[in-house]
């Protein structure tokens, strides 16, 4: 009994550790004063000011645009790449998979400076394009890593069966393979989106004049003190994601219960 209480207490302490900064952020988004140290009364003014703050809105705009485009492009390239890699064999497959791992295992900062070096070498002007290209580069490997297991789980004769019944390779891909691996594609796309939206290091090195994202804005604000408007924005984004998760979770627990029932049959 004592053991059980201790276990509970430990988990609660850990949650406290992880959530303390988030709680502080949310509380201070309602703080009257701009100072981050002291509480001086409840207000909603930062939530109103948020929609007038051009700097923050612009950063938000670029963050979302880049995350959307990077996740869509990397999902398309990555899905096709995964299908191709799945079809490879032997040493070729090994080489491609290892190269694919490079951006995953390399520290962000190394990926960041190497891309920066490339863009300078190509004399590309730093800005939207360089940022987008670098985001796509670090997103594709994660798409591949989430699509590939779905392909491996798939009955490998499925595409053959479709072709056996008269489907051309493209038709078989569209009607049979893609529907089979769609959960992996969605996971990959979501992963790419969140990675892109949260990225700081790679964007920081490959940004250009006038093009910035939320992380970079926060970093540059950190020295002079962060505008509570950012706290308000983050609170909104965080609760939005939380609601999304609850909806998805409700659906997936329903599916889970269905599966359990099937299994019990």
């Amino acid at each position: 009994m004592v053991g059980k209480i201790l276990k509970r207490l430990y988990i609660i302490l850990m949650f406290l550790f992880l959530y303390a900064p988030i709680i502080v952020l949310i509380i201070f988004s309602f703080n009257e004063s701009k100072s981050r140290g002291t509480w001086s009364g409840f207000t909603l003014k930062w939530y109103i000011e948020l929609f007038r703050d051009a700097e923050v809105l612009k950063a938000l705009y670029y963050t979302v645009i880049i995350a959307l485009s990077a996740s869509i492009i990397s999902t398309i390239i990555g899905t096709f790449a995964a299908i191709g890699i799945y079809d490879m064999c032997g040493i070729n497959k090994k080489i491609v998979l290892n190269l694919n791992y490079l951006p995953v295992i390399n520290p962000d900062i190394v990926t960041a400076v190497s891309l920066m070096t490339l863009f300078r070498f190509l004399r590309l002007e730093f800005g939207f394009v360089t940022m987008l290209l670098s985001h796509i580069t670090f997103c594709i490997p994660y798409v591949i890593l989430s699509v590939l297991p779905k392909l491996q789980q798939m009955n490998k004769h499925l595409a053959e069966a479709a072709m056996d019944l008269g489907a051309t390779p493209m038709y078989a891909m569209k009607k049979v393979v893609i529907p089979e691996i769609i959960p992996g594609i969605i996971t990959g796309a979501l992963m790419a989106f969140t990675l892109s939206i949260d990225d700081f290091v790679i964007s920081f090195f490959n940004k250009g004049a006038g093009i910035t994202n939320l992380s970079i804005t926060i970093f540059s604000m950190a020295r002079r003190g962060i505008n509570p408007v950012i706290n308000a924005l983050s609170t909104l984004m965080f609760t939005g994601l939380l609601i999304l998760l609850l909806v998805i979770n409700k659906r997936s627990t329903k599916n889970l219960n269905k599966e359990v029932k099937l299994y019990e049959k």
């Binding site: 009955n155 004769h157 056996d164």
Partner: peptide, 13 residues
């Protein structure tokens, strides 16, 4: 020519 595959390869979706 049509084939009946070893593990049937029915389209699960």
């Amino acid at each position: 020519i049509n084939t009946v595959f070893q593990r049937y390869a029915l389209f699960p979706h």
